[in-house]
Design a protein around this nucleic acid. Structure first.
Lengths: 278, 278
DNA sequence: AATGACGGTTGCACGATATGCAACGAAGCA
DNA sequence: TGCTTCGTTGCATATCGTGCAACCGTCATT
């Protein structure tokens, strides 16, 4: 919409590929060097771009700081964190929290396994959207049409022989997940790693986040992991209750609409830092 | 330098404080609503800004992905990581790696303590620049003038009674660090946490990164932690050797210039995807 | 229901502002 | 020394971003 800003922002993914010099940036943008220079300078002033000693540009520190602040201000994360820690203390495995945004699903919190074997993942990293338990949970209750459209658009990389192979299989899997209210990933991303997950439900009754427990085969078998399901669902429900007053599994929360549930229900859904506009 | 881009980028830190609606953004920027709208739309198209269901804007997913890619393309980090893991396995404590950029020092890697007590820090988070061991190491071998200028410009928050109180004390501390080639933070940031650190030396002989081991008092006393110093320095030197062939401590690397050290020295200093500067 | 207030959105005319050009400066190389 | 390459600067042009005013949808109030 705004040409100048558009060009400037296009520099970021370009630099994410690796450091580049002025000439290359100008070339890739299709603009004159002097133009690229001015854009880079502006990005530099805001700390989004850093000029290293060999004069080439790369992504800058402020980007981290921003991503940092962004993830910390997510209210679901705030509420969920203690529950995740709690769950981790009970079962010892890696616990993840993820949200769906735009066309990606990404981890926003993680509590590391207490076992020496750890899986590779990082907060902010987009998940394998076609196989991860959390991704299935979040996409499962998208509106019908969106779900179909998304499924068509996706790639279906075969990480392992048990990865979701195509859109049809994926939609079928989503239907199952939607119905049962929980999801698994049994070796679909990495041969030896299994996950089970459950959704965090928002005020509108849809999944606002999803959590999962992951463990490698060498620690527990898939069957053993599945015995944790009740615990995982209870944790997810506890988060949902605190976040929105609704829960994903069990009886629908009519009681939330009926009398005054007093106990733990009507917490403020969003936690705004300052409310200065009366 | 470029007004439009400047304005657009100013939105990011603004949203980092928390979600905001169009009106607030326009007001904070001092521009008309329609202008703010166009800027936000452009940011949105690039995924840097996300519009949540209540129509308010907040920072978007791509920011995470970018920060992610940026940190992963740092070559020091790549080289250092296995050494950090190794060190963690030997001593059990939290290990950090940090770099200096612009006017900040920030963590770019971390291996969590194996003890239940963990300290709060996160990759991408700027460190307490006046007290952290890694910060002292990185600032210690800045050119004289830059160091003085920086020291004057800084704030000196008294996190604890042992925090660096002012510029004079800081410069003196840096001189010590520079001379001895390692640094400590004994309760200067959090009363009960001690750190020791050592620098990673680049091809130009200056610190390109710094690493540290941190542990709370309840696990090991400061004296006990100091006994790890040789191990920490050896690890930092190993990283330096692999990264640039030079080391920080011990005899100056004449031998690196003399015969062929065969063993572990002349690794490619930078791992650029494409080497376009011969 | 009707009214008003509020926040977001659109189209447009104006001119501020981003653009490419050309010339300059600074390294690196033969 | 001359040549090439790359970053930088000043400037005239017109493109592109800007603010205005009007419009629309939603919500709250009477």
């Amino acid at each position: 919409m705004s040409q100048t800003v558009d060009r400037a922002l296009s520099i970021l993914p370009l630099l994410a590929e690796g450091p580049a010099d002025l000439g290359r940036v100008a070339e890739r943008l299709g603009v004159h060097k002097s133009t690229a220079l001015r854009l880079l300078r502006t990005l530099h002033e805001h700390g989004l771009v850093y000029r290293q000693s060999d004069q080439r540009y790369r992504l800058g520190a402020r980007l981290f700081a921003l991503a940092q602040q962004a993830v910390e201000s997510l209210d679901v994360r705030e509420i969920a964190h203690p529950h995740l820690v709690d769950l981790n203390e009970r079962c010892g495995h890696t616990v993840h929290l993820a949200v769906h945004e735009e066309h990606e699903v990404l981890y926003i919190d993680k509590v590391e396994s207490r076992y020496p074997v750890r899986m590779y993942s990082r907060i902010g990293k987009p998940v394998a959207i076609t196989v991860a338990a959390v991704a299935k949970l979040l996409l499962a209750d998208l509106p019908e049409t969106e779900r179909r459209a998304l499924a068509q658009r996706l790639d279906y990389p075969m990480y392992t022989s048990r990865s979701t192979p195509n859109a049809t299989a994926f939609l079928k899997e989503l239907a199952t997940v939607r119905e049962q209210g929980w999801a698994t990933d049994l070796g679909g991303h990495e041969e030896s790693i299994n996950c089970i997950g459950a959704p965090v439900i928002g005020a509108d009754g849809r999944a606002v986040a999803a959590m999962s427990v992951s463990a490698p085969n060498v620690v527990v078998t898939a069957e053993e992991l599945l015995t944790l399901l009740p615990l995982v669902r209870r944790t997810a429900d506890a988060i949902s209750r605190e976040y929105s007053g609704r829960t994903g599994s069990g009886p629908l929360p009519d009681r939330a609409l009926a009398a005054s549930p007093a106990a733990a229900s009507p917490a403020p859904p969003h936690a705004h830092p300052t409310e200065d506009h009366p």
